[in-house]
Design a protein around this nucleic acid. Sequence first.
DNA 1: GGGTCCGGTTGATCCAGATCAGGGCGGGTC
DNA 2: GACCCGCCCTGATCTGGATCAACCGGACCC
Lengths: 254, 254
Amino acid sequence: MTFSVAATTTAAVAPPPMPAPQTRGVETVTGRCAGCSARSKGLCGALTAGDLPNLSTTSRPLDLLSATPVVMEGEEAGAVFTVMSGMLKLYKTLPDGRQQITGFATAGDVIGLAVGTGYAYTAETVTASTVCRMPRTALRRLMERHPAVQGRLLAMTSVELSAAQDQILLLGCKTAVERVSSFLLALSRRSRPLADGTPSVFLPMPKVDIGAYLGLRPETLSRVLRKLEGAGAITRLTNDRIRIENPAALEAAA
Amino acid sequence: MTFSVAATTTAAVAPPPMPAPQTRGVETVTGRCAGCSARSKGLCGALTAGDLPNLSTTSRPLDLLSATPVVMEGEEAGAVFTVMSGMLKLYKTLPDGRQQITGFATAGDVIGLAVGTGYAYTAETVTASTVCRMPRTALRRLMERHPAVQGRLLAMTSVELSAAQDQILLLGCKTAVERVSSFLLALSRRSRPLADGTPSVFLPMPKVDIGAYLGLRPETLSRVLRKLEGAGAITRLTNDRIRIENPAALEAAA
DNA sequence: GGGTCCGGTTGATCCAGATCAGGGCGGGTC
DNA sequence: GACCCGCCCTGATCTGGATCAACCGGACCC
């Protein structure tokens, strides 16, 4: 689960990057995947340029507003999606409505991989995002033809599993301060520092979502952030950006 | 993470099933893997009988007493292990000693798959167990030669990931009663019912380990079990066996 | 402008589960 | 037999974070 965020908060959707899905010859179609900014990070990084035209015929980029559902827990898993830009939240819901966010997906992440026939979680955009849709059958054929794709998928799933186990440790053992500190540190490792070189994190999602990820109420999250700020570990620049003043202090708290 | 337990609690180790690791010809070596009870469930189920002799030269079964560490978090991941019988606990440790059990491994489960170079968790037997050791390099060669093995590994990792996300939901949202009920139901689905047909679960691990898996103290676990018994949902037959009297009541509580 | 809504923050209070403390029991050893 | 030790259970008390309630400020709409 990566966190290298680079998205607008609640902006309108940019116009589609391609003229239209009309046939314009293989050259143009190849260009769509060849120019994909998420390709090196995502599933398709395992393919060579020569394979891309074929890929372009089965995959389609989609531009989505914020708060748009992409896959729904339990629904038949007909396709997988690669995030090209923006951010999504993945969550599971209990019958009585309680929700647990299991992760946030950003550029390069693949969502919608299912064990059985149904999606294991719901995925919904938190900012305007672009995702690339690939039918499940196309993915299966791609894996059969290119074992490297399967290897890539295995590597990505293994990383996800490891992240999930870290989250189990966080939810099972850690205190509120430790959870927030761990979260901020994990984010800061994946985001670029500010112009002056100090590390910072961008939090485009609402506080209630961060809480639902960390197993905390938004009130508790707010109090912990105040405490960390009072201790000189962080500074809240705006509502959605925090500067890490003292990584060592956060490390000690996590 | 499967739970179909069938193991002695703290018994002595059975004598090695094979005469000795001396060379006795391909026939016998083939026999070792061909007769492996965990083969269909484990990684090697993706192989045909003809591939087994080669497998036997790189893999070795190991008989282990209870409370024996198999892999240690952070150590270099030189091999993977398939559980043939018994039960292991997998856990992560915080610097101050707090431990979170991320899962229990039983026959067919593969442990020790690592993303980077180091194991992500510690694995330790909770009952006397038999595991099959395969060097990492041998696994890599096996995957290169047999894409089906890689597919199997991907499927197994995906199931693990899904189970980990369920555990995140449990730890992030559920109450103590809900956690224990979910746990008992998950176990009962994977174990055989008693002779009279009522479902039951076998809990060879100490209560403190179940607590460490569910994010609860053993005192709380004890109180919850008493409560469930008082409500007529379960009966404690012995210290390590519980009969599910009313699956619907557990379902409602979970 | 004024109104409403929503996300965030802060304060007061509550409670589920942790912690602390004591006791029972079965297995192992001498 | 007596003793010890580990595991489990139970009761009393404590507390971290949830819950309840109120307020603030910015975005949006009329």
